[in-house]
């Protein structure tokens, strides 16, 4: 009897630190999730609610699916144009990031060359300079070469922002494809290029698409460069930043929802590749 009691006490003593650790972990997770989800929830509820419901409190748990705010937003002067610009810039950013990032990632993954580590670092260093610092010289430069207020000019800046991620995602992607597969292709009649096309590319395609979508999202969400570098050809973020100040509340919420929903969906679709980038899971 006593021995049973002791063992039970021992067992609970042993279990205690683990369960308290679990409690801390769980509350941290809840706080983090709430931190991300509550604003999104409020945004979506207000965007989908009727114009009157926006100022109401408490909020309905389930939105009313009144599309008036969104319809108003869609018809607001300049919105369709800004939306198109955002798509064009983000699309171009995606193409450029893949076009430049894939070869760079492949080189990092497959070749040992002097300065490989320096290159890897330099790729990351492009994110070390805050954009506000670069904005003025960039604007001056862009005006000089005629790239100011153009889609391509903004896409170039966004490509610079997206490139580190594109390169590192694709480097880890190519590293995960065994070199022997390529070598086998070489021995079976492939050149380096055709082996890449027939063996590496089909295997890398989902990951490359993920890196591209990630670049798209970075561009889609970017405000600062877009606001500074464009006047006529504003992207949605820049447009909202400029005009929302003076807009009614429902429009603000509708604009916010339109901005974040595509980004969220895309990120959700490519989440496993982002994990692999940070080494959390390999596949």
């Amino acid at each position: 009897m006593t021995s049973l009691a002791t063992t039970e006490a021992e067992a609970s003593a042993r279990a205690e630190p683990r369960s308290s650790g679990r409690l801390v972990m769980a509350s941290a997770v809840i706080v983090l999730v709430a931190w991300v989800l509550v604003p999104i929830y409020l945004l979506v509820v207000n965007a989908l609610g009727s114009v009157a419901a926006v100022t109401a409190w408490p909020k309905a748990l389930v939105p009313e699916f009144d599309l008036a705010s969104l319809a108003f937003f869609a018809n607001y002067a300049g919105v369709p144009r800004a939306l198109l610009n955002s798509f064009l810039v983000a699309g171009l950013t995606m193409v450029l990031s893949i076009g430049l990032g894939a070869p760079a990632g492949y080189a990092l993954a497959r070749f040992r060359f002097p300065g490989a580590n320096l290159f890897r670092l330099a790729v990351l260093m492009t994110r070390a300079f805050p954009l506000p610092l670069l904005a003025l010289p960039l604007t001056v430069l862009f005006i000089r070469v005629g790239l100011d207020d153009t889609i391509i000019g903004l896409a170039l800046v966004h490509t610079t922002l997206a490139m580190p991620f594109a390169v590192l995602i694709m480097a880890s992607l190519f590293m995960s494809i065994p070199e022997e597969l390529e070598e086998a292709a070489w021995t079976l009649g492939c050149s380096r290029l055709s082996a890449f096309r027939k063996v590496v590319l089909p295997l890398a395609l989902p990951g490359i698409a993920a890196a591209g979508i990630f670049a798209f999202v970075i561009s889609w969400n970017e405000v600062f460069a877009a606001a500074v570098l464009t006047i006529e050809n504003k992207t949605l973020t820049a447009f909202l930043l400029q005009s929302l100040d003076v807009s009614p509340l429902p429009l603000k919420f509708a604009g916010g929802a339109v901005l974040i929903v595509p980004a969220l969906l895309f990120l959700f679709a490519v989440r496993k590749y982002l994990f692999s980038l940070w080494g959390i899971a390999n596949r």
Binding site: W186, T187, V199, P202
Partner: peptide, 20 residues
């Protein structure tokens, strides 16, 4: 010459069967 012009074929230790 590159491997493809040598008239060889190779079997690799981890097989290297194309997964796709």
């Amino acid at each position: 010459l590159p491997p493809r012009r040598r008239g060889i074929a190779m079997v690799f230790q981890n097989y290297a069967v194309f997964p796709h």
